[in-house]
Amino acid sequence: MGRLSYADDQELLARIGRGDAAAFDVFYERYWKFVFNAAYKRLSDREAAGDISQEVFSQLWTYLHSGEAPVIDNVPGYLYVAVRNHVFKWMEKEKRFVPIPEVLEKLEGHDNRADAGLLFEELLAAYRGLVAGLPEQQRLIFQLRYDEGMSSGEIASQLHLSEKTVRNQIGRALGKMKSGLAFLLVLLLSVVPG
């Protein structure tokens, strides 16, 4: 391993792609702490962070041997995204959701306002995507209620529907939005530094 420990990331990745286990060991030692810390920072769970770290390196080994792997120019960036994606999968599998006030606290305390603004824009775009994905009548009723501020009675009158139908459609739309936004808030909290 002596000479390999001085090899740059690209050389190590190329060697790993050819099945060089010693190169993989050097790469693993070089980035294990980075990957583990990135996972632990999001989960505050040592066991889960360790499992995710193992998955990231295992997936990298498989990916490099697939013959389809493009050059990874930014290794820390690649690993960071891989960790984030595995954390999302873990949270979804574990059904981990975070209360909204906790998300708001994290955003308020976030030092880099530009990053926080970007995250908010991503959340807003995802919210708009959820609204756009509602069935047409639900989407229209939801927008009239929450974008235009109309009451159920006003919406019913404008659309020639019963108030009960409007309330039912709002309830269904809110159910879909609530579950979608809960997952989005988990994602947002995952990428806001703690």
Rank of each mutant, 00 (worst) to 15 (best):
L4A: 08
D8P: 00
L13D: 01
A14M: 10
R18F: 08
D20V: 03
D20M: 05
D20G: 04
A21V: 07
A21M: 11
A21D: 09
A22R: 05
E29G: 12
W32Q: 06
W32A: 05
K33Y: 09
K33F: 06
V35K: 03
A38W: 02
Y40E: 03
L43C: 08
R46Y: 10
S53A: 09
F57Y: 08
Q59H: 13
W61Y: 08
T62G: 06
A69L: 04
V71L: 15
I72G: 02
G77N: 13
Y78H: 13
Y78T: 04
R84K: 15
V87L: 01
E92A: 13
E94W: 11
K95T: 03
K95I: 00
F97K: 11
V98R: 00
P101G: 11
V103I: 12
V103G: 06
E105R: 15
L107D: 04
G109K: 15
H110S: 08
A114K: 15
E121W: 11
Y127P: 00
R128Q: 10
G133W: 12
G133V: 05
L134D: 06
E136V: 11
E136R: 15
Q137T: 05
L140W: 10
L144I: 05
L144Q: 07
D147S: 11
D147Y: 14
Q158R: 15
L159I: 08
S162E: 12
S162Y: 13
E163L: 11
T165V: 10
V166S: 04
N168I: 09
L174R: 15
M177T: 07
S179M: 12
L181R: 14
L185C: 07
V186Y: 06
L187A: 13
L187T: 04
V191I: 11
